[in-house]
């Protein structure tokens, strides 16, 4: 360690090699990945999310939802993601190509949300909004995404079925609506060519018997 230059070069290489290997290596492999165009359907998958869902993704990000929710389904024989109804196939890199802010997440205090929009719970937006207003299991209520507003004339169509002082109603803010739109947009269940692991033929035959 007497030679300062060699030492410095070593430090530089330590960062550069790992960066080149992991970051640039996967960049070479995935950097040009494009949505998959299905001629039968006449459109490309994954589809771009609607504008309001893209706004909702920012709400998801700034509230830190990823602290408790992952958005990555593991393959059927690795964990019980499929059995829990979180997705029939594993998530693949192509699922995320259109996303400006990828939220893979590292913790499953709450359920995985990669295909949340395709589940029965997500069909009805007003139900999801109600869900955000109330505490459910381990998920806190997000009351700050709602406004208490004085009723003038008719009750608003989007008012929640929730206890409010007389003459007042609870209205979801635009952020709540956008967040729900984002959650509903997480419904990419399209079967990409690479979306299934290659299963050994013998195992498959065994299952069918």
């Amino acid at each position: 360690m007497k030679n300062g230059f060699t030492f410095f070069l070593g430090l530089f290489l330590a960062v550069a090699l790992a960066w080149a290997g992991i970051v640039m290596g996967s960049h070479v492999q995935l950097g040009h990945l494009a949505p998959y165009f299905d001629e039968n359907e006449g459109k490309a998958f994954p589809e771009r999310m609607p504008g309001i869902a893209a706004q909702g993704q920012l709400v998801y990000q700034d509230l830190g939802c990823a602290a408790c929710h992952t958005q990555q389904v593991r393959r059927p024989d690795f964990g019980s993601d499929k059995a829990r109804g979180w997705g029939d196939r594993q998530s693949v890199a192509r699922d995320y190509v259109n996303q400006a802010h990828v939220q893979l997440g590292e913790s499953r205090v709450g359920p995985d949300l990669a295909t949340f929009g395709a589940r029965p719970l997500a069909v009805d937006a007003s139900r999801l909004i109600q869900y955000l207003y109330e505490q459910h299991g381990g998920m806190p209520a997000y009351r700050f995404l709602f406004e208490e507003r004085k009723i003038t004339g008719e009750r608003s169509a989007n008012a929640l079925k929730a206890a409010a002082p007389a003459g007042y109603e609870i209205i979801p803010s635009h952020r709540a609506v956008a967040l729900v739109a984002y959650l509903q947009s997480l419904n990419n269940v399209y079967e990409y060519p690479e979306a299934r692991p290659v299963e050994p033929a013998a195992a498959k035959e065994g299952e069918s018997k």
């Binding site: 509230l63 830190g64 939802c65 990823a66 602290a67 998920m139 806190p140 209520a141 997000y142 700050f144």
Partner: peptide, 14 residues
């Protein structure tokens, strides 16, 4: 989960 749930700055994610 109800602890400080009403405070947007102190929601668990943040």
């Amino acid at each position: 989960p109800e602890l400080l749930a009403g405070c947007s700055a102190m929601t668990y994610g943040r």
